[in-house]
Design a protein around this nucleic acid. Structure first.
Lengths: 225, 225
DNA sequence: GCTCCCCCTGAACCCGTGCTGAACAACTTA
DNA sequence: TAAGTTGTTCAGCACGGGTTCAGGGGGAGC
């Protein structure tokens, strides 16, 4: 678990970082808003402790920019007791929790744990097609609940087909999305993969459209042509 | 200890209630989602067993509404073996544990004990995965209750895998979350740690997904392919 | 019906990935 | 200082899997 501490008071910063390290986090720290913003923007943290009163760029602005840029890590904000309006602004900017100074490190740690755990259970997108379900995060494939072993490339290919199911996908389109750069065009790798996939998930799930490409379908839902 | 059983199959419902009563719980039961939701919303239960496939209101919705309303009791969800995605949705909605049908009542009782104990000793944030439990606070690991000695880095790694169990974690993601800043990218430290962890907690708990990374799984919950 | 071309399939090759044992370095503890 | 942990590196090995090739089958068009 990586944590970022953005706090301008050097003593408090060190104390927080130390506490988090002892709690098992890998901690980076920043002493002003600009540094903090940059670090949160470039490194994948699991949780962030963010003071709102910061030099160079205030905490609310930092948080707003992170959220605009799509950084979704949970953020716990620290506010002084008498700055009640800041707290509201912080929540509006996308904070997940807050704590007013002074506080006990125990309480901070408890809240951090809650945040990281909550974030851990987030969104798992599985694609369904007939009895076929594709767990894009776990890189697993199931047919009617039974796991199917697929290799990395097979999975990429099936995943792409599933994202565009019922559409005809040309060979070149598949190649472009499965492989990094250029690829030997006159090769039958794609066909081989299609064949292997058909063996694993059933012949009738991947239709071949002669001269055009392939199409992933739900075999039972398909009207008898 | 008060328990609520929400299960639409009358036979299974009675069987569960009976088993829990024998174990010393005061049990209420509901046969559909609406009743279950109302009861959980109005009575202070210590633990809830919730089937996901329910008439009138499905289990995930029930759970979501409870959590939105601030009901914090631990919830163990029951899923059919072939509804893998439901399990994930249940966790997202705030479930604490799950069990796939069919199951042994002994296992259900064991998990219930774990849940209530965890809820009782507040902030005992331990992550469970099969018989593997990870005490994030004490940095300790247990297999079926027996302590396992792991080093600091081993623990961080296992902890991260556990926070994202059933997800494939790439080597780089592991490195980024275990180590503070930069790290020699072409090093096989991760593999060595995986190997050592496997020796300690069992080979089948950490799956390697070739070309992608590793995945922490519950070895018993997974049906033999 | 015949032919061409596209597609499928089985097998083999070979490279990369990942696993393992051991040694080494850094650090802590007695 | 010596002994024991813990983290890291290295080299060798095994094998999984991506790629290629050759041959066969079957549509589509004439």
């Amino acid at each position: 678990m990586r944590a970022l501490v953005v706090e301008d008071d050097p003593d408090l910063n060190r104390q927080l970082s130390r506490a988090l390290e002892d709690a098992g986090y890998a901690v980076d720290s920043a002493l002003d808003g600009e540094d903090g913003h940059f670090m949160g923007d470039t490194e994948p943290y699991d949780v962030v402790v963010l003071d709102l009163g910061l030099p160079k760029m205030d905490g609310v602005t930092v948080l707003e920019r992170w959220r605009e840029a799509g950084r979704g890590f949970p953020v716990l904000i620290l506010t002084a007791r008498d700055r009640w309006s800041e707290k509201v602004a912080g929540f509006d900017a996308g904070a997940d929790d807050y704590l007013t100074k002074p506080f006990h490190t125990e309480e901070l740690l408890a809240r951090m744990r809650a945040l990281t755990r909550r974030a851990a259970g987030h969104t798992t997108s599985t694609i369904e097609c007939g009895g076929l379900s594709i767990d894009t995060r776990g890189a697993r494939v199931f047919i009617d609940g039974a796991p199917v072993k697929v290799t990395s490339h097979e999975f990429r290919m099936l995943s792409y087909l599933a994202h565009h199911q019922d559409r005809v996908i040309s060979r070149t389109e598949l190649v472009e999305h499965i492989y990094d750069q250029d690829f030997d065009r006159d090769s039958n790798t794609i066909e081989v993969f299609v064949g292997r996939l058909r063996k694993k998930i059933g012949t009738d799930r991947i239709e071949t459209v002669r001269g055009l490409g392939y199409r992933l379908v739900d075999p039972v839902a398909r009207p008898v042509s």
